[in-house]
């Protein structure tokens, strides 16, 4: 009896996974390509940032944080834009792939925005003389972080995954629409409450040629890193979903055996 069940289950397993195997393997090739390219570029980027880019004449070596901070911050905005679009498409089509994209992008986005805040703080301490200032971009970034942490919390605390997908899509849409309003409200607010700490170095200098080139390279590197991480996370979610599908097929079989 137990043995028949075992073979039945194995059968269910193999049948379930035949079709979805193909696309997964292809996307894995893509990810291998991405990780190799990304790794090489990251090494190159690091060497560019630390050896090629000239030391800033006024800010000194700390200015190099800039090559990390700006691309990471921009990528996190990109990530949340992807969440916004994927959420809308998911709610309209109900295709799980879009939900995977939204989730992967949101998770990577939260990591990036956290890094952007940390590098921002590292930048602010020596340059502005304070760890934190309620500067519009910094403040908006902090609000972004809060919104998308809430996004992940809604997903985690929902009664079931379908509900989590729908609720977080709603938060992904509402949150993103809110961002420009947050940004403008903070800018206007700043214009009334001038910053108490405007150090002599607060204004960024115009970028010199090599610096701009390194920055551009850094942008591309982090873009590839972002795409790789999202692809990797999506593949992981897809594997989870497929495993869930197999489990669910097994449960059906197990019930029918009686």
């Amino acid at each position: 009896m137990a043995e028949t069940r075992q073979t039945e289950l194995a059968h269910a397993d193999s049948r379930e996974s035949v079709t979805p195997l193909g696309p997964v393997r292809r996307s894995r090739d893509l990810r291998v390509y991405l990780v190799v390219l990304g790794g090489v570029m990251m090494l190159a980027d690091l060497s560019f940032i630390f050896w090629v880019a000239p030391t800033d004449s006024i800010l000194g070596d700390i200015q190099r944080v800039f090559y990390f901070h700006v691309p990471i911050a921009v990528m996190s905005f990109l990530a949340f834009f992807v969440v916004f679009v994927a959420s809308i498409v998911y709610l309209v089509t109900r295709s799980p792939a879009w939900d995977r994209l939204a989730q992967a992008s949101a998770e990577v986005g939260v990591v990036f925005v956290t890094l952007a805040l940390i590098t921002g703080v590292i930048w602010a301490r020596p340059i502005w003389g304070v760890w934190w200032t309620w500067e519009p971009r910094l403040t908006t970034t902090l609000i972004l972080w809060l919104i998308y942490v809430a996004y992940l919390m809604v997903r985690a605390y929902a009664a079931n995954p379908n509900q989590g997908a729908r609720y977080s899509a709603v938060v992904g849409i509402v949150g993103f629409v809110d961002v420009p309003i947050v940004y403008y409200s903070v800018i206007w607010w700043r214009s009334i409450h001038p910053s108490p700490v405007v150090g002599p170095l607060a204004q960024a200098n115009a970028l010199e040629g090599t610096m701009a080139a390194v920055l551009l390279f850094s942008f591309i590197t982090f873009l590839i890193l972002f795409v790789f991480l999202v692809a990797q996370r999506m593949a992981l979610r897809e594997t989870e979903d497929r495993l869930g599908g197999i489990k669910s097929a097994m449960r059906r079989r197990a019930e029918s055996v009686f």
């Binding site: 609000i143 809430a150 949150g175 947050v182 403008y184 409200s185």
Partner: peptide
């Protein structure tokens, strides 16, 4: 907890 966590960031403006 969820209501304030969702509500305050969005309502900030």
């Amino acid at each position: 907890i969820m209501l304030p966590v969702l509500f305050f960031p969005v309502i900030l403006p």
